[in-house]
Design a protein around this nucleic acid. Structure first.
Length: 832
RNA sequence: GCCGCGAUGGCGGAAUUGGUAGACGCACAGGACUUAAAAUCCUGCGGCUUCGGUCGUGUGGGUUCGAUUCCCACUCGCGGCACCA
């Protein structure tokens, strides 16, 4: 037999598959469908490294098996090509972003094609194609019309290096996720999407996603950050104003000893005339403004604040006068931007109270301790002040008496005394509502999505500002609003997009009154186009509608979605939001886009670090394909370890995969066409078919391959193997190593392509082993293995055999047998 | 700090409705073939051992005839969030 020449074979079959169009998607609604999707790549200038295709190989394995199982498979690929990296790359290389994208896409496509994927390139999409972003703009317009897109002037995250505003989701520890610069708070005019309107549904519907990893759902839950509580109004003494606070612990209202207002709170300017130390306060407020997100985090351990002299807040439950502070440990953007502070039961308030000598009043004790407690004088603040040091030492030493953020029993709390926290909360909320001091309230950490970028390379926001009519949507007939051709697309840094300098493009007519008007010059963020691309694959040429609803009904939802976990709180939450909106306006049939999600574990470099140009440890798949072949690379990446776990690249492991394929190649010499039954191999073959089928379904590729290796090792020990057994082997191996398997299939005289043949079904009877081995234990220690020639062994038979075993007798040695435990067909434990 | 996940040979990893720990691969060692090397094939491969055994799945306890698997306490590592009231 000739040598296994991967270079020749792989090219040959790739050409033939393409020529015969075996991966062309058929709109054949009779067959069951299977939509398997990768998170589409961002075509960077660097090209692919070996880590990128790992997920694509996995979906390809699934797609190939599903195709052979008779499914109508949609397994598409496309490009997420708008955004800062393309623009920055273009600026650095002094070419137009569109040129850069074109070049990079060509490189990526060429690299992917070497790996033998089943993509139907007729379905290829590109988010920067005007025919595509026409519909991205269309979705934005629908949101605008429903009041879900609004203009805002509030301070947002500003990256001074990228010179654009960013969403909360785009930050990493207070730094720009892209370039690592410290992010500032800057008031920039911006468009914001009301994702918070969907917070409740985005949270609740996570329960529907049974086939998503729990970790991702947990991350989304935390990101949405729902908390229940109440808004409470504190009147300000001698002044017709009130401080509205949000608390999750209305049951601790009797323990409130001060209030805090965020520096940015609008109440500050209203209170100004009454604040005795305004100068000092205003300096503090100015200082807070200039702190970056990171500085604020760093200062978390050392809270600062200024007392507002002359301002007293009245606690509605007991009319106590409370000191009011301004402090930047309170965030303007969360809740009401002001709090009631209960230092005894909140560690942050506690820290602040200790620092500024504010009374600490205990109003919740652990269950069972309320009886023992001496009721302290509730009104004697000076006494409480003196107790601060005592309480402090209590907290810091041994077991704290004060309980933070935990449930217990209410004490010192008037009408709540003796109630467990849960009931106390309810009673207090009812009291607040009855007396009009507040109401039940739910808050979310999730912020509205800052959706505009002050950069060139993004979808133009399709709005026009008319002096008379205000913001007017571009007529849907005039979509897409295309990016103009320009010489300079460098960021202005003024808070306006580079588009604002292009007067010809900016100046236009109002669609409503035909008067003079100007286009919005901000563009959409990179995450816009990726919010709905999975719908475009279904109907990639549609110019009349976002997606044909019948086609959508057939193909949606995506059956299986594979991609990196880093998208948990960005793409995956944005896409769910848009999809739910599209469902609401009746553009799609289902309210969740992705039925099953699987995360791909990162491939690290051999040195254990991330693959990066910076470390010089990048491995290019082209080189691997050339030296060992696409099949070897596919098998290796699937065999490395559990699919969703990170794993370091190992060149020797790759050689192992190649060796395995060599063994399979030479097995063909052992195929005997006359052989019908090959004894014990038959049983192993069927076990392997079962295991590989199940393991591909559950993404346990490593164990699927291990089982096939075991089978190949056994086959190698035989002098001859049957045609049918060898065909079974190459059929189930073909999703992993499609080229070599097609070649072997053809060598065996297969008339049709292997990919067009049927996936093997295992024979239930053959899976069962012909003999049974039972482990014999004495006191839980293995003392013997007994082989029986039948499949089903009764307890009596097993017992008899065990007791007559010489090695077992030795251990029993006449001792009384207390108990015998029999696990059917597996194990017998004799207890003495 | 909070939430989630994890820890098994020299290495990547297998095995969990509790039932033979270390499948499969890599590395390594010995052998065969070869003038030689590569490739390939065969054998061995957790520690200790008086070769009978015995100890071993991050640590310390517990439940059980039996624990990598279940329970309690802890250590370390990874990921996410981070003054969210």
């Amino acid at each position: 037999m000739t040598k296994y020449n991967h270079l020749k074979i792989e090219k040959k079959w790739q050409k033939l598959w393409s020529k015969k169009g075996v991966f062309k998607v058929k709109e054949d609604a009779v067959k069951p469908k299977y939509y398997v999707l990768d998170m589409f790549p961002y075509p960077s200038g660097a090209g692919l490294h070996v880590g990128h295709p790992k997920g694509y190989i996995a979906t390809d394995v699934v797609a190939r098996m599903k195709q052979m199982q008779g499914f109508n498979v949609l397994h598409p690929m496309g490009w997420d090509a708008f955004g800062l990296p393309a623009e920055n790359y273009a600026i650095q290389n002094k070419i137009h972003p569109a040129e850069a994208v074109k070049k990079n896409v060509a490189t990526f496509k060429k690299q992917l094609e070497l790996l033998g994927f089943t993509y139907d390139w007729d379905k290829e999409i590109n988010t920067t194609d005007p025919a595509y972003y026409k519909w991205t703009q269309w979705i934005f317009l629908q949101m605008f019309k429903k009041g879900l897109a609004y203009e805002s002037f509030a301070p947002i995250n500003w990256c001074p290096s990228c010179q654009t505003g960013l969403a909360n989701e785009d930050l990493e520890e207070g730094k720009c996720e892209r370039c690592g610069s410290l992010v500032e708070q800057k008031p920039i005019r911006q468009w914001v999407l009301k994702i918070t309107d969907y917070a409740e549904r985005l949270l609740n519907d996570l329960d529907k996603l049974k086939n998503w990893p729990e970790a991702i759902k947990e991350m989304q839950k935390n990101w949405i950050g729902r908390s229940e509580g109440a808004d409470v109004d504190f009147k300000i003494k001698n002044f017709d104003l009130k401080i509205k606070v949000f608390t999750t612990r209305p049951d601790t209202l009797f323990g409130a000893t001060y209030c805090v207002i965020a520096p940015e709170h609008e109440l500050m300017s209203k209170l100004q005339p009454e604040i005795g130390n305004w100068q000092e306060v205003s300096i503090y407020i100015e200082g807070a403004k200039h702190k970056t997100a990171l500085e604020r985090t760093d200062l978390a351990k050392n809270k600062t604040g200024i007392e507002l002299k002359g301002i007293k807040a009245i606690n509605p439950v007991n009319n106590e006068e409370l000191t009011v502070f301004v402090a930047d440990y309170i965030l303007a953007g969360y809740g009401t931007g002001a709090i009631m502070a209960v230092p005894a039961h909140d560690s942050r308030d506690y820290e602040f109270a200790v620092k500024y000598g504010i009374p600490i009043k205990e109003v919740v004790v652990p269950v069972g301790e309320n009886q023992k407690l001496n009721i302290k004088n509730q009104n004697d603040n000076s006494k409480l002040k003196n107790e601060n040091n005592e309480l402090k030492s209590k907290v810091q030493s041994s077991k704290p008496q004060i309980i933070f953020e935990k449930d217990g029993i209410a004490v010192n709390s008037g009408f709540l005394d003796g109630l467990p926290t849960k009931e106390a909360k309810e009673k207090m909320i009812k009291w607040l509502e009855d007396n009009k001091f507040g109401e039940r309230k739910v808050n979310y950490k999730l912020r509205d999505w800052v959706f505009s970028r002050q950069r060139f390379w993004g979808e133009p926001i399709p709005l026009i500002k008319c002096e008379k009519c205000g913001w007017v949507p571009v007529s849907e007939n005039d979509l897409p609003v295309e990016l103009p051709k320009v010489k300079s697309y460098t960021a202005t840094g003024t808070g306006e997009s580079p588009l604002s300098a292009i007067e010809k493009w900016v100046n236009t007519k109002c669609p409503k009154c035909s008067g003079p008007a100007k286009r919005e010059t901000n563009t959409m963020p990179q995450w816009g186009g990726s919010c709905w691309y999975y719908l475009r694959y279904i109907d990639s040429q549609n110019d009349k509608a976002l997606v044909d609803k019948d086609k959508e009904k057939y193909w949606s939802p995506v059956d299986f979605y594979v991609g990196g976990a880093e998208h948990a709180t960005r793409h995956l939450i944005y896409a769910r939001f848009w999809h739910k909106f599209l469902f609401d306006i009746d553009a799609v049939n289902y309210d969740e886009p992705f039925n099953r999600l699987q995360n791909v574990g990162l491939i690290l470099a051999e040195d254990g670090r991330k693959m990066s140009k910076r470390w010089g440890n990048v491995i290019n798949p082209d080189d691997v394909v050339k030296q060992y072949g696409a099949d070897a690379m596919r098998v290796y990446e699937m065999f490395m370890g559990p699919f969703n776990q990170p794993c370091a690249w190992n060149a020797n492991g790759l050689i192992g995969a190649k060796r395995f394929l060599d063994k399979v190649w030479f097995l063909q010499d052992k195929v005997d066409k006359k052989l019908v039954v090959s004894g014990k191999i038959d049983s192993l073959v069927h076990q392997t078919i079962k295991k590989v089928t199940d393991d591909i379904e559950t993404m346990r590729f490593n164990t699927a391959i291990a089982k096939m290796m075991e089978l190949v090792n056994e086959m190698n020990k035989e002098t001859v193997i049957s045609v049918s057994n060898f065909k079974f082997l190459i059929s189930i191996l073909s999703p992993f190593a499609p080229h070599i398997c097609e070649e072997l299939w053809a060598e065996l005289g297969g008339k049709e392509l292997l990919i067009l043949s049927l996936w093997p079904k295992y024979d239930e009877k053959s899976v069962m082993a012909e003999t049974t081995v039972i482990v014999i234990q004495v006191n839980g220690r293995v003392r013997d293995n007994i082989e029986f020639q039948t499949a089903d062994i009764s307890e009596e038979v097993a017992k008899e055999a065990a007791l007559s075993s010489e090695s077992v007798k030795k251990y029993i040695n006449g001792t009384e047998i207390k108990k015998i435990i029999y696990v059917k067909n597996k194990l017998l434990n004799i207890v003495i």
